[in-house]
Design a protein around this nucleic acid. Structure first.
Lengths: 202, 202
DNA sequence: GTCTATATTGCGATAGAC
DNA sequence: GTCTATCGCAATATAGAC
Protein backbone atom coordinates (compact mmCIF):
# COMPACT_ATOMS: atom_id res chain seq x y z
CA UNK A 1 0.00 0.00 0.00
CA UNK A 2 2.70 2.46 0.93
CA UNK A 3 5.90 2.98 -1.01
CA UNK A 4 8.38 2.58 1.82
CA UNK A 5 11.40 0.49 0.78
CA UNK A 6 11.18 -1.83 3.72
CA UNK A 7 13.21 -4.95 3.96
CA UNK A 8 10.15 -7.11 3.92
CA UNK A 9 10.25 -10.15 1.68
CA UNK A 10 7.73 -8.56 -0.60
CA UNK A 11 9.82 -5.44 -1.14
CA UNK A 12 13.03 -7.42 -1.52
CA UNK A 13 11.41 -9.54 -4.19
CA UNK A 14 10.21 -6.50 -6.08
CA UNK A 15 13.62 -4.90 -5.89
CA UNK A 16 15.67 -7.84 -7.10
CA UNK A 17 13.10 -8.62 -9.78
CA UNK A 18 13.45 -5.09 -11.08
CA UNK A 19 17.21 -5.50 -11.32
CA UNK A 20 17.14 -8.89 -12.96
CA UNK A 21 14.47 -7.85 -15.44
CA UNK A 22 16.57 -4.85 -16.38
CA UNK A 23 19.71 -6.93 -16.75
CA UNK A 24 18.34 -9.88 -18.66
CA UNK A 25 14.92 -8.89 -19.82
CA UNK A 26 11.60 -10.20 -18.52
CA UNK A 27 11.48 -13.49 -20.39
CA UNK A 28 15.07 -14.46 -19.72
CA UNK A 29 14.58 -14.03 -15.99
CA UNK A 30 13.18 -17.05 -14.21
CA UNK A 31 10.96 -16.87 -11.16
CA UNK A 32 13.42 -19.17 -9.49
CA UNK A 33 16.37 -16.84 -10.01
CA UNK A 34 14.44 -13.90 -8.60
CA UNK A 35 13.56 -15.84 -5.49
CA UNK A 36 17.11 -17.06 -5.07
CA UNK A 37 18.48 -13.53 -5.41
CA UNK A 38 16.04 -12.42 -2.74
CA UNK A 39 17.03 -15.29 -0.50
CA UNK A 40 13.66 -16.99 -0.40
CA UNK A 41 11.83 -19.80 -2.10
CA UNK A 42 10.07 -19.13 -5.38
CA UNK A 43 6.77 -20.08 -3.85
CA UNK A 44 6.91 -16.72 -2.12
CA UNK A 45 6.52 -14.95 -5.41
CA UNK A 46 3.23 -16.70 -5.97
CA UNK A 47 2.24 -16.05 -2.40
CA UNK A 48 2.81 -12.31 -2.73
CA UNK A 49 2.17 -11.58 -6.38
CA UNK A 50 0.20 -14.48 -7.80
CA UNK A 51 2.26 -14.81 -10.96
CA UNK A 52 5.38 -13.59 -12.69
CA UNK A 53 3.25 -11.34 -14.89
CA UNK A 54 1.59 -9.79 -11.87
CA UNK A 55 4.97 -9.14 -10.32
CA UNK A 56 5.97 -7.20 -13.42
CA UNK A 57 2.67 -5.33 -13.42
CA UNK A 58 3.22 -4.48 -9.78
CA UNK A 59 6.65 -3.07 -10.57
CA UNK A 60 5.27 -0.92 -13.38
CA UNK A 61 2.36 0.24 -11.28
CA UNK A 62 4.76 1.33 -8.59
CA UNK A 63 6.72 3.30 -11.16
CA UNK A 64 3.61 4.98 -12.50
CA UNK A 65 2.56 5.96 -9.00
CA UNK A 66 6.02 7.26 -8.19
CA UNK A 67 6.14 9.33 -11.35
CA UNK A 68 2.67 10.70 -10.83
CA UNK A 69 3.64 11.96 -7.41
CA UNK A 70 6.72 13.75 -8.64
CA UNK A 71 5.91 17.35 -9.31
CA UNK A 72 7.90 19.62 -11.56
CA UNK A 73 10.87 20.97 -9.66
CA UNK A 74 10.48 24.74 -9.53
CA UNK A 75 13.28 27.24 -9.91
CA UNK A 76 16.78 26.89 -11.33
CA UNK A 77 17.98 26.98 -14.90
CA UNK A 78 16.88 24.54 -17.58
CA UNK A 79 20.20 22.83 -17.20
CA UNK A 80 19.80 22.47 -13.45
CA UNK A 81 16.34 21.07 -13.88
CA UNK A 82 17.38 18.48 -16.39
CA UNK A 83 20.45 17.56 -14.35
CA UNK A 84 18.22 16.98 -11.35
CA UNK A 85 15.88 14.89 -13.46
CA UNK A 86 18.76 12.76 -14.66
CA UNK A 87 20.02 12.27 -11.13
CA UNK A 88 16.59 11.13 -10.05
CA UNK A 89 16.07 8.79 -12.99
CA UNK A 90 19.49 7.33 -12.37
CA UNK A 91 18.23 5.95 -9.09
CA UNK A 92 15.43 4.30 -11.04
CA UNK A 93 17.63 3.07 -13.82
CA UNK A 94 16.65 -0.61 -13.65
CA UNK A 95 13.00 0.28 -13.73
CA UNK A 96 13.56 2.52 -16.72
CA UNK A 97 15.54 -0.05 -18.70
CA UNK A 98 12.91 -2.65 -18.04
CA UNK A 99 10.17 -0.27 -19.11
CA UNK A 100 11.98 0.59 -22.33
CA UNK A 101 12.61 -3.03 -23.24
CA UNK A 102 9.03 -4.03 -22.70
CA UNK A 103 7.66 -0.98 -24.48
CA UNK A 104 9.65 -1.84 -27.57
CA UNK A 105 7.89 -5.15 -27.96
CA UNK A 106 5.46 -4.59 -30.79
CA UNK A 107 3.05 -7.02 -29.19
CA UNK A 108 2.05 -5.28 -26.02
CA UNK A 109 -1.12 -3.31 -26.01
CA UNK A 110 -1.09 -0.83 -23.18
CA UNK A 111 2.07 1.19 -23.49
CA UNK A 112 3.09 2.38 -20.06
CA UNK A 113 6.09 4.26 -21.42
CA UNK A 114 3.88 6.52 -23.51
CA UNK A 115 1.52 6.89 -20.62
CA UNK A 116 4.21 8.02 -18.23
CA UNK A 117 5.85 10.21 -20.84
CA UNK A 118 2.58 11.95 -21.64
CA UNK A 119 2.07 12.76 -18.00
CA UNK A 120 5.61 14.07 -17.62
CA UNK A 121 5.30 16.21 -20.71
CA UNK A 122 1.95 17.58 -19.69
CA UNK A 123 3.27 18.59 -16.29
CA UNK A 124 6.31 20.20 -17.81
CA UNK A 125 4.34 22.04 -20.45
CA UNK A 126 1.83 23.30 -17.96
CA UNK A 127 4.69 24.97 -16.11
CA UNK A 128 5.62 26.67 -19.36
CA UNK A 129 2.16 27.97 -20.16
CA UNK A 130 1.00 25.20 -22.47
CA UNK A 131 -2.07 23.11 -22.29
CA UNK A 132 -1.87 19.78 -24.06
CA UNK A 133 -5.42 18.66 -24.80
CA UNK A 134 -7.06 15.28 -24.30
CA UNK A 135 -6.08 12.36 -22.15
CA UNK A 136 -5.00 9.75 -24.63
CA UNK A 137 -6.61 9.90 -28.04
CA UNK A 138 -6.80 12.98 -30.21
CA UNK A 139 -3.87 15.23 -29.56
CA UNK A 140 -5.89 17.95 -31.26
CA UNK A 141 -3.79 17.89 -34.40
CA UNK A 142 -1.72 20.91 -35.45
CA UNK A 143 0.20 22.56 -32.67
CA UNK A 144 -0.49 19.92 -30.05
CA UNK A 145 0.86 17.11 -32.19
CA UNK A 146 3.98 19.05 -33.00
CA UNK A 147 4.65 19.87 -29.36
CA UNK A 148 4.00 16.34 -28.22
CA UNK A 149 6.25 14.81 -30.87
CA UNK A 150 8.95 17.34 -30.13
CA UNK A 151 8.87 16.86 -26.38
CA UNK A 152 8.75 13.10 -26.58
CA UNK A 153 11.29 12.29 -29.28
CA UNK A 154 13.83 15.03 -28.66
CA UNK A 155 13.27 15.42 -24.93
CA UNK A 156 12.04 12.33 -23.11
CA UNK A 157 13.62 9.78 -25.42
CA UNK A 158 17.21 11.07 -25.34
CA UNK A 159 17.10 11.46 -21.57
CA UNK A 160 15.64 8.01 -21.00
CA UNK A 161 18.16 6.37 -23.28
CA UNK A 162 21.02 8.29 -21.80
CA UNK A 163 20.17 6.85 -18.41
CA UNK A 164 19.71 3.37 -19.80
CA UNK A 165 22.80 3.33 -22.01
CA UNK A 166 25.23 5.64 -20.22
CA UNK A 167 27.32 2.85 -18.71
CA UNK A 168 27.57 0.89 -21.93
CA UNK A 169 28.22 4.03 -23.93
CA UNK A 170 31.06 5.14 -21.68
CA UNK A 171 32.61 1.68 -21.61
CA UNK A 172 32.34 1.25 -25.33
CA UNK A 173 33.93 4.55 -26.23
CA UNK A 174 36.24 4.85 -23.25
CA UNK A 175 34.68 8.04 -21.96
CA UNK A 176 34.61 8.99 -18.27
CA UNK A 177 31.14 9.22 -16.74
CA UNK A 178 31.26 12.83 -15.67
CA UNK A 179 32.51 13.93 -19.06
CA UNK A 180 29.71 12.09 -20.83
CA UNK A 181 27.16 13.57 -18.52
CA UNK A 182 28.41 17.11 -19.04
CA UNK A 183 28.45 16.55 -22.79
CA UNK A 184 24.93 15.20 -22.66
CA UNK A 185 23.64 18.19 -20.74
CA UNK A 186 25.29 20.42 -23.33
CA UNK A 187 23.70 18.46 -26.14
CA UNK A 188 20.20 18.59 -24.67
CA UNK A 189 20.58 22.26 -23.89
CA UNK A 190 21.74 23.07 -27.39
CA UNK A 191 19.24 20.92 -29.20
CA UNK A 192 16.04 20.21 -27.36
CA UNK A 193 15.75 23.18 -25.07
CA UNK A 194 16.98 25.67 -27.59
CA UNK A 195 14.18 24.54 -29.88
CA UNK A 196 11.29 24.56 -27.48
CA UNK A 197 8.17 25.53 -29.27
CA UNK A 198 6.79 28.70 -27.76
CA UNK A 199 3.08 28.94 -26.87
CA UNK A 200 2.57 31.75 -29.38
CA UNK A 201 3.92 29.80 -32.33
CA UNK A 202 1.65 28.27 -34.92
CA UNK B 1 27.16 -15.27 -48.54
CA UNK B 2 25.29 -12.69 -50.56
CA UNK B 3 22.52 -10.48 -49.30
CA UNK B 4 19.86 -11.29 -51.88
CA UNK B 5 16.46 -11.84 -50.28
CA UNK B 6 15.85 -15.15 -51.98
CA UNK B 7 12.96 -17.32 -51.05
CA UNK B 8 15.24 -20.06 -49.85
CA UNK B 9 14.35 -21.70 -46.57
CA UNK B 10 17.38 -20.12 -44.96
CA UNK B 11 16.35 -16.60 -45.94
CA UNK B 12 12.73 -17.17 -45.05
CA UNK B 13 13.78 -18.36 -41.59
CA UNK B 14 15.94 -15.31 -41.08
CA UNK B 15 13.17 -13.02 -42.17
CA UNK B 16 10.40 -14.41 -39.98
CA UNK B 17 12.78 -14.73 -37.04
CA UNK B 18 13.58 -11.05 -37.37
CA UNK B 19 9.88 -10.19 -37.27
CA UNK B 20 9.04 -12.42 -34.35
CA UNK B 21 12.05 -11.29 -32.34
CA UNK B 22 10.99 -7.68 -32.90
CA UNK B 23 7.41 -8.39 -31.92
CA UNK B 24 7.94 -10.54 -28.84
CA UNK B 25 11.60 -10.22 -27.99
CA UNK B 26 14.27 -12.85 -28.35
CA UNK B 27 13.52 -14.92 -25.28
CA UNK B 28 9.77 -14.99 -25.74
CA UNK B 29 10.12 -16.31 -29.27
CA UNK B 30 10.43 -20.07 -29.53
CA UNK B 31 12.42 -21.85 -32.20
CA UNK B 32 9.28 -23.79 -32.95
CA UNK B 33 7.19 -20.69 -33.64
CA UNK B 34 9.84 -19.33 -36.00
CA UNK B 35 9.89 -22.56 -37.97
CA UNK B 36 6.12 -22.73 -38.09
CA UNK B 37 5.91 -19.16 -39.36
CA UNK B 38 8.41 -20.06 -42.05
CA UNK B 39 6.45 -23.14 -42.98
CA UNK B 40 9.16 -25.65 -42.12
CA UNK B 41 10.14 -27.89 -39.27
CA UNK B 42 12.19 -26.48 -36.43
CA UNK B 43 14.96 -28.94 -37.17
CA UNK B 44 15.76 -26.73 -40.16
CA UNK B 45 16.86 -23.93 -37.86
CA UNK B 46 19.47 -26.19 -36.35
CA UNK B 47 20.43 -27.43 -39.78
CA UNK B 48 21.03 -23.92 -41.09
CA UNK B 49 22.08 -21.95 -38.05
CA UNK B 50 23.17 -24.43 -35.42
CA UNK B 51 21.28 -22.77 -32.58
CA UNK B 52 18.80 -20.05 -31.74
CA UNK B 53 21.64 -17.84 -30.54
CA UNK B 54 23.51 -18.29 -33.79
CA UNK B 55 20.38 -17.37 -35.73
CA UNK B 56 20.21 -14.11 -33.80
CA UNK B 57 23.91 -13.48 -34.36
CA UNK B 58 23.41 -14.12 -38.03
CA UNK B 59 20.63 -11.56 -38.18
CA UNK B 60 22.74 -8.93 -36.43
CA UNK B 61 25.75 -9.68 -38.61
CA UNK B 62 23.60 -9.17 -41.68
CA UNK B 63 22.47 -5.82 -40.33
CA UNK B 64 26.00 -4.70 -39.62
CA UNK B 65 27.08 -5.65 -43.10
CA UNK B 66 24.11 -3.88 -44.62
CA UNK B 67 24.78 -0.73 -42.64
CA UNK B 68 28.46 -0.77 -43.47
CA UNK B 69 27.69 -0.85 -47.16
CA UNK B 70 25.33 2.09 -46.99
CA UNK B 71 27.16 5.26 -47.86
CA UNK B 72 26.01 8.74 -46.96
CA UNK B 73 23.44 9.95 -49.45
CA UNK B 74 24.88 13.04 -51.14
CA UNK B 75 22.95 16.17 -52.04
CA UNK B 76 19.60 17.44 -50.84
CA UNK B 77 18.73 19.40 -47.73
CA UNK B 78 19.25 18.12 -44.21
CA UNK B 79 15.54 17.45 -44.04
CA UNK B 80 15.60 15.44 -47.26
CA UNK B 81 18.51 13.41 -46.03
CA UNK B 82 16.95 12.57 -42.75
CA UNK B 83 13.62 11.78 -44.41
CA UNK B 84 15.41 9.36 -46.73
CA UNK B 85 17.16 7.79 -43.78
CA UNK B 86 13.87 7.31 -41.99
CA UNK B 87 12.32 5.76 -45.07
CA UNK B 88 15.20 3.33 -45.33
CA UNK B 89 15.21 2.41 -41.65
CA UNK B 90 11.48 1.89 -41.83
CA UNK B 91 12.08 -1.06 -44.13
CA UNK B 92 14.42 -2.45 -41.48
CA UNK B 93 12.12 -1.69 -38.61
CA UNK B 94 11.99 -5.20 -37.17
CA UNK B 95 15.74 -5.46 -37.20
CA UNK B 96 16.05 -2.12 -35.47
CA UNK B 97 13.52 -2.90 -32.75
CA UNK B 98 15.22 -6.19 -32.06
CA UNK B 99 18.60 -4.49 -31.91
CA UNK B 100 17.34 -1.86 -29.49
CA UNK B 101 15.74 -4.40 -27.19
CA UNK B 102 18.83 -6.53 -27.00
CA UNK B 103 21.13 -3.56 -26.59
CA UNK B 104 19.19 -2.42 -23.56
CA UNK B 105 19.94 -5.62 -21.69
CA UNK B 106 22.62 -4.67 -19.23
CA UNK B 107 24.07 -8.15 -19.51
CA UNK B 108 25.31 -8.21 -23.05
CA UNK B 109 28.91 -7.43 -23.63
CA UNK B 110 29.48 -6.47 -27.24
CA UNK B 111 27.06 -3.71 -28.04
CA UNK B 112 26.19 -3.84 -31.70
CA UNK B 113 23.97 -0.79 -31.47
CA UNK B 114 26.86 1.41 -30.39
CA UNK B 115 29.05 -0.18 -33.00
CA UNK B 116 26.64 0.55 -35.82
CA UNK B 117 25.86 4.00 -34.50
CA UNK B 118 29.54 4.91 -34.30
CA UNK B 119 30.03 3.92 -37.89
CA UNK B 120 26.99 5.89 -39.02
CA UNK B 121 28.09 8.95 -37.12
CA UNK B 122 31.63 8.73 -38.39
CA UNK B 123 30.44 8.55 -42.00
CA UNK B 124 28.08 11.43 -41.49
CA UNK B 125 30.66 13.59 -39.75
CA UNK B 126 33.28 12.90 -42.40
CA UNK B 127 30.90 14.35 -44.95
CA UNK B 128 30.71 17.46 -42.79
CA UNK B 129 34.45 17.92 -42.41
CA UNK B 130 34.89 16.19 -39.06
CA UNK B 131 37.21 13.42 -38.14
CA UNK B 132 36.20 11.40 -35.12
CA UNK B 133 39.32 9.73 -33.73
CA UNK B 134 39.90 6.14 -32.68
CA UNK B 135 37.95 3.00 -33.41
CA UNK B 136 36.30 2.11 -30.16
CA UNK B 137 38.10 3.24 -27.02
CA UNK B 138 39.34 6.74 -26.35
CA UNK B 139 37.16 9.25 -28.07
CA UNK B 140 39.97 11.72 -27.50
CA UNK B 141 38.12 13.63 -24.79
CA UNK B 142 37.05 17.22 -25.29
CA UNK B 143 35.53 18.03 -28.62
CA UNK B 144 35.27 14.47 -29.88
CA UNK B 145 33.34 13.32 -26.86
CA UNK B 146 30.96 16.24 -27.12
CA UNK B 147 30.33 15.59 -30.81
CA UNK B 148 29.86 11.88 -30.29
CA UNK B 149 27.44 12.33 -27.41
CA UNK B 150 25.53 14.97 -29.31
CA UNK B 151 25.24 12.94 -32.50
CA UNK B 152 24.29 9.77 -30.72
CA UNK B 153 21.80 10.93 -28.10
CA UNK B 154 20.11 13.74 -29.98
CA UNK B 155 20.52 12.34 -33.50
CA UNK B 156 20.69 8.57 -33.75
CA UNK B 157 18.60 7.81 -30.69
CA UNK B 158 15.54 9.92 -31.54
CA UNK B 159 15.50 8.62 -35.10
CA UNK B 160 15.88 5.00 -34.05
CA UNK B 161 13.15 5.27 -31.47
CA UNK B 162 10.86 7.12 -33.82
CA UNK B 163 11.06 4.21 -36.22
CA UNK B 164 10.58 1.68 -33.46
CA UNK B 165 7.76 3.47 -31.65
CA UNK B 166 5.97 5.40 -34.40
CA UNK B 167 3.10 2.94 -34.72
CA UNK B 168 2.49 2.70 -30.99
CA UNK B 169 2.91 6.42 -30.57
CA UNK B 170 0.36 7.24 -33.25
CA UNK B 171 -2.11 4.66 -31.96
CA UNK B 172 -1.76 5.79 -28.39
CA UNK B 173 -2.27 9.48 -29.07
CA UNK B 174 -4.58 9.15 -32.05
CA UNK B 175 -2.24 10.90 -34.45
CA UNK B 176 -2.16 10.12 -38.19
CA UNK B 177 1.13 8.69 -39.41
CA UNK B 178 1.99 11.36 -41.93
CA UNK B 179 1.32 14.09 -39.41
CA UNK B 180 3.58 12.48 -36.85
CA UNK B 181 6.31 12.03 -39.40
CA UNK B 182 6.15 15.65 -40.52
CA UNK B 183 6.19 16.78 -36.90
CA UNK B 184 9.16 14.55 -36.21
CA UNK B 185 11.12 15.94 -39.12
CA UNK B 186 10.37 19.42 -37.85
CA UNK B 187 11.50 18.48 -34.38
CA UNK B 188 14.78 16.97 -35.52
CA UNK B 189 15.43 19.88 -37.80
CA UNK B 190 14.77 22.41 -35.07
CA UNK B 191 16.66 20.60 -32.35
CA UNK B 192 19.41 18.30 -33.49
CA UNK B 193 20.37 19.81 -36.81
CA UNK B 194 20.07 23.37 -35.66
CA UNK B 195 22.57 22.57 -32.93
CA UNK B 196 25.19 20.73 -34.93
CA UNK B 197 28.58 21.45 -33.50
CA UNK B 198 30.71 23.14 -36.15
CA UNK B 199 34.25 21.89 -36.80
CA UNK B 200 35.70 25.22 -35.70
CA UNK B 201 34.04 25.17 -32.30
CA UNK B 202 35.98 24.32 -29.22
C1' DG C 1 17.14 -30.65 -47.34
C1' DT C 2 13.36 -31.87 -44.86
C1' DC C 3 10.78 -34.44 -41.68
C1' DT C 4 9.34 -37.35 -37.31
C1' DA C 5 10.37 -38.66 -33.00
C1' DT C 6 12.54 -38.14 -28.87
C1' DA C 7 15.89 -36.84 -25.32
C1' DT C 8 16.42 -33.57 -21.77
C1' DT C 9 16.12 -29.78 -19.29
C1' DG C 10 14.08 -25.82 -17.29
C1' DC C 11 10.13 -23.13 -16.47
C1' DG C 12 5.73 -21.36 -14.27
C1' DA C 13 2.71 -22.71 -11.06
C1' DT C 14 0.32 -25.45 -7.12
C1' DA C 15 -0.42 -28.46 -2.92
C1' DG C 16 0.42 -29.11 1.43
C1' DA C 17 3.52 -29.54 5.59
C1' DC C 18 5.39 -26.68 9.11
C1' DG D 1 4.88 -16.54 6.08
C1' DT D 2 8.06 -19.84 4.43
C1' DC D 3 9.49 -24.18 2.73
C1' DT D 4 9.68 -28.90 0.12
C1' DA D 5 8.02 -31.54 -3.38
C1' DT D 6 6.02 -32.10 -7.50
C1' DC D 7 2.98 -31.56 -11.59
C1' DG D 8 2.57 -30.37 -16.31
C1' DC D 9 4.25 -28.29 -19.99
C1' DA D 10 7.04 -25.93 -23.27
C1' DA D 11 11.55 -25.11 -24.54
C1' DT D 12 16.18 -26.11 -26.93
C1' DA D 13 18.41 -29.39 -29.15
C1' DT D 14 19.62 -34.05 -31.41
C1' DA D 15 19.21 -38.63 -33.94
C1' DG D 16 18.00 -40.74 -37.64
C1' DA D 17 14.67 -41.97 -41.40
C1' DC D 18 13.44 -40.43 -46.01
Amino acid sequence: MDGSPDDTTRDRLRKVAEELFARQGYDATSVDSIARAAGVNKAMIYYYFGSKQQLAHDIFAQMQEEMAQRSAVPGGTMRDKIAAEIDFLDTRKSLLSFLLMESLKAEDQANILLDIAARLIRTDLAARGFDLPAETGQAGAGIATRVLVHEFFTGVVPIALFIALEAKFCDHFGIPRDEARAAFLDAVERSHFASHIAPDEA
